[in-house]
């Protein structure tokens, strides 16, 4: 009985797809020469990939291990809806995920613009802590305000990247279609904009029309798989030099 539930949860196409991407990512990461393994151009996308696949699978596990989920919800102060595993996605996707993607964007910015990302991350962390401590958006329920702030910061980061793309000589000398950063940025932009309304109105939709909420969440999942595939491509990019060009700006600290 338990096994069939486990099977049902973990044979979901999304979890299978991202777990497969993690295996491919690990394979290519292990094949990287040592000097590239320590370069943040490769380990940072790999870190996001590992982190995302872990929390997504953890989300599935929480659906399977209801008792554990109930325990965590109770510890966080949620006894009303013990089946919700939204706390995990709040931490993983809305909060840490946003910070990781902001740092990823920072890698592709011209050195003079990197400081803006540091400020965005700092302001985001302060706001997230304040909103949660003030009880405006508890961690165990949907956090539309925090998502909206994070999504707007990602949009600002994207704006900085695209400004660099059309003004900096190094980017102007490249073909954007051959830049992994361009594709990753485009899909980050699409992910955050297409899921914007959905994420902000998630709880409302869940109560009003669960089917539609699940359907709209598929956009999230499809774009999530595309984003993770691009992260795998970053790790595999030393083997794909005939397809992708070298990124013009990736120096500077994280």
């Amino acid at each position: 009985m338990m096994d069939s539930r486990f099977y049902q949860i973990f044979t979901d196409w999304y979890l299978i797809a991202i777990s497969f991407l993690l295996i491919v990512g690990i394979f290519y990461f292990l094949k990287l020469p040592n000097h590239l393994k320590v370069s943040k151009i490769f380990w940072f996308p790999f870190l996001i990939l590992v982190f995302t696949v872990i929390y997504e699978n953890m989300g599935g596990y929480l659906k399977y291990n209801f008792e554990f989920n109930k325990l965590v919800n109770a510890a966080l102060g949620n006894e009303e809806n013990p089946t919700y595993n939204v706390w995990l996605f709040n931490i993983g996707y809305y909060q840490i995920g946003t910070i990781l993607y902001l740092f990823l964007i920072k890698n592709w910015l011209v050195p003079s613009k990197k400081k803006y990302i540091n400020w965005l991350v700092f302001v985001f962390i302060v706001l997230v802590i304040a909103i949660q401590l003030l009880g405006i958006e508890p961690i165990y329920t949907s956090q539309p305000i925090i998502f909206a702030i994070g999504a707007n910061m990602i949009l600002v980061g994207s704006g900085l990247y695209f400004i660099g793309l059309i003004t900096e000589d190094n980017y102007l000398n490249s073909n954007p279609f051959k830049l992994l950063s361009f594709w990753q940025m485009t899909f980050i932009l699409f992910t955050y904009s297409l899921t914007y309304i959905n994420s902000v109105a998630l709880l409302y939709l869940w109560n009003i029309n669960k089917e539609l909420a699940i359907s709209l969440m598929q956009i999230n999942r499809v774009l999530g798989v595309i984003n993770l595939s691009l992260l795998v491509l970053w790790v595999a990019s030393p083997k794909l030099t005939n397809i992708f060009e070298t990124e013009p700006y990736y120096h500077g600290s994280i």
Partner: peptide, 19 residues
Amino acid sequence: IYVIIFATIFLGGIMSTFV
């Protein structure tokens, strides 16, 4: 619900135009 769907499509459209 229609507003949500249209808003999502609209935002997607804006982003496509932007890129």
